[in-house]
Amino acid sequence: MQALTQWLDRGFRVLLVGLMASMVAAVCWQVISRYALNDPAAWTEEMARFLLMWIGLLGACYAYREGQHLGVDLFPKSLSPARYRVWALCAHSLVILFSVMVLLIGGGRLVYLTASLNQTSAALGVPMSWIYMSLPLCGVMMIVYALDAMLHPEQPSTEGVMIDG
């Protein structure tokens, strides 16, 4: 499990940085194609928006893994270590509940609908189901990280989960 999540973390970081770099490149190409080439590219804006969606959803899993999401942390900080473990168990369970319901079931159905109804994007013409795939993928990653955090509550990377600062 530990080896798996470590391998997952590494791959995930590379993916996120790749998405971010591609997004910057897409917006830059938009300027270059309009001015240097005088032939504005039609796909750049849409591509950048889709990449932002992926960065926002998948990056949120990474931020969760790192315990960076913003919250009011007065209460958990005041707990004894034993009680904190109970609190963490409950908090991570809530994240799993949200991920299963909204990201996996809701997002999954959205992918199914857009795939079976053949919806394509306006500029790139790519199937919208590929774009929405970020939702269930985000759900899976959230669940994996939540389970890992519940199994290894002492792990330093999960020590400050859900506490900003």
Partner: peptide, 11 residues
Amino acid sequence: ATETTAIVMFL
């Protein structure tokens, strides 16, 4: 930068 972005975007 990606992480900071994602925190905001998820919100």
